[in-house]
Design a protein around this nucleic acid. Structure first.
Length: 291
DNA sequence: ACCGCACCCTGAGCGC
DNA sequence: TGCGCTCAGGGTGCGG
């Protein structure tokens, strides 16, 4: 489940495969709500364009073109952006990996979930976007054009401060966790990092936002920045049953304190971690450490 | 303006 | 073995 760190790592790894290269042709799947811009228009808009850069805001990626305009990509829950070369192995789903013998794992073949397939004039590695559940999104923006979804995004979560959080929480009746997940307040935080940050800050996720103190807001902001930064450093791994054979993948999953640890002992006090539901999302916390 | 909830999708895991 | 059920969740959009 890609959140800010996973998107940042994807951004850094995909950039060398895109920047400076001219797109020769684009293959897409059939139209679906995955395509905010219809697939035929995406293909037409990308063909012949040269990528000038890749950037990220919150969980959104922008693949920018020389002469203006860009392709906006959101990975949703299961989105993957990767090249046909060395990086493909790490970015395939656990299922796809498990079904392949180790010696076969370098040969990715586009499947029905591969919604974009980019080929380049230089004949080098292809680039794929794959998304099994289609919660991801792609859209094309012309030069200077914007989109409401992007306009509304709050400050990137790596830049969050206690002051910002404090002012955003005033008069808000929602659970503090729901507020952290609100991309209009803060862009990039997802379910895992919200739970982890609230644990580190010692704040119970069900607490109403308006009742969180200024000091606690400072704690949450510090915890968020620290966790996101640390996760990027470790490769931005998300929670998964899969363990990379070579162990070279992101390892943040090994550092989580509460997420997906229901009934297991808290690392600080030993109390069993509790699981509840907030805003349709599984929520994990220590009943003793988080007030 | 704000809040809670249904919904989009597919695969994994479970019980029978 | 295989069916049917439940769960996972980012984000939108609806009704209250």
């Amino acid at each position: 489940m890609p959140e800010l760190p996973e998107v940042e790592v994807t951004c850094r790894r995909i950039a060398p495969l895109l920047v400076g290269r001219k797109i020769r042709s684009v293959r897409t799947t059939a139209d679906s709500y995955f395509f905010l811009t219809p697939p035929a228009e995406v293909a037409a808009a990308l063909q012949g364009r040269t990528v000038s850069g890749v950037s990220r805001h919150g969980k959104y990626l922008r693949i920018e073109f020389e002469g203006g305009g860009c392709l906006v990509v959101h990975l949703g829950m299961t989105g993957q952006l990767f090249g046909s070369g060395v990086s493909s192995v790490r970015l395939l789903s656990a299922t796809a990996r498990a079904s392949l013998a180790p010696e076969e794992q370098t040969a990715f073949e586009p499947d029905s979930h591969t919604h974009l397939h980019l080929r380049f004039e230089d004949g080098g590695a292809d680039v794929y976007m794959r998304d099994v559940r289609k919660f991801g999104k792609v859209l094309v923006l012309g030069p200077g054009e914007t989109h409401e979804r992007l306009e509304r995004l709050g400050i990137d979560a790596l830049e969050v401060s206690g002051e910002l959080l404090f002012s955003a929480t005033r008069k808000r009746a929602v659970a503090i966790k729901s507020l952290l997940l609100d991309q209009v307040v803060l862009a990039g935080v997802g379910n895992i990092y919200a739970d982890e940050a609230l644990f580190l800050a010692g704040v119970r996720p069900t607490r109403r936002a308006a009742r969180v103190t200024r000091k606690q807001c400072d704690g949450i902001a510090d915890a968020l920045r620290g966790i996101l930064q640390r996760s990027i450093e470790t490769g931005g791994s998300s929670i998964s049953d899969y363990v990379a054979p070579d162990g070279s993948d992101g390892s943040y999953q090994d550092e989580r304190r509460v997420y997906a640890r229901a009934k297991q002992p808290c690392f600080v006090c030993g109390s069993p971690i509790r699981k509840t539901v907030i805003g349709q999302r599984g929520t994990h916390y220590c009943p003793s450490c988080q007030k």
